[in-house]
Amino acid sequence: MSFDKTTIARISRLARIATTEAEQERLAGELGGILAWVEQLDEVDVEGVAPMTSVVEMNLKAREDVVSDGANAEGILKNAPKSAHGFFVVPKVVE
């Protein structure tokens, strides 16, 4: 697997992480190396094998469909870099 800068630019946009061109250059080499190494998985015969969804055999529990937590806007906003009137504040998103 070889990576180019364009691919790195595309996935860093998807991941919402700004990268400089120099970083993209370096990351292309590093990620290419890691993904070339994981390609040995192609040697494994997984025909008919179910992908793992739970490491320990258990049935997920269902709880009653009732409100069990919440109503703590103050606590939730306490760590916000910016908040006002009980809301998180972000840069303007609607023109």
């Binding site: 691919t7 998807l14 991941a15 992480i17 990620l31 998985l41 997984v46 992908p51």
Partner: peptide, 27 residues
């Protein structure tokens, strides 16, 4: 690095080749 690898292997068109395959190997 890990977020970017993860984003790549989960991105459209690559999910089966990487993540699903790895979960089968895990089995």
């Amino acid at each position: 690095r890990r977020i970017l690898i993860g984003t790549y292997v989960l991105s459209a068109g690559y999910y089966d080749a990487y993540y699903l395959k790895a979960q089968k190997v895990r089995t």
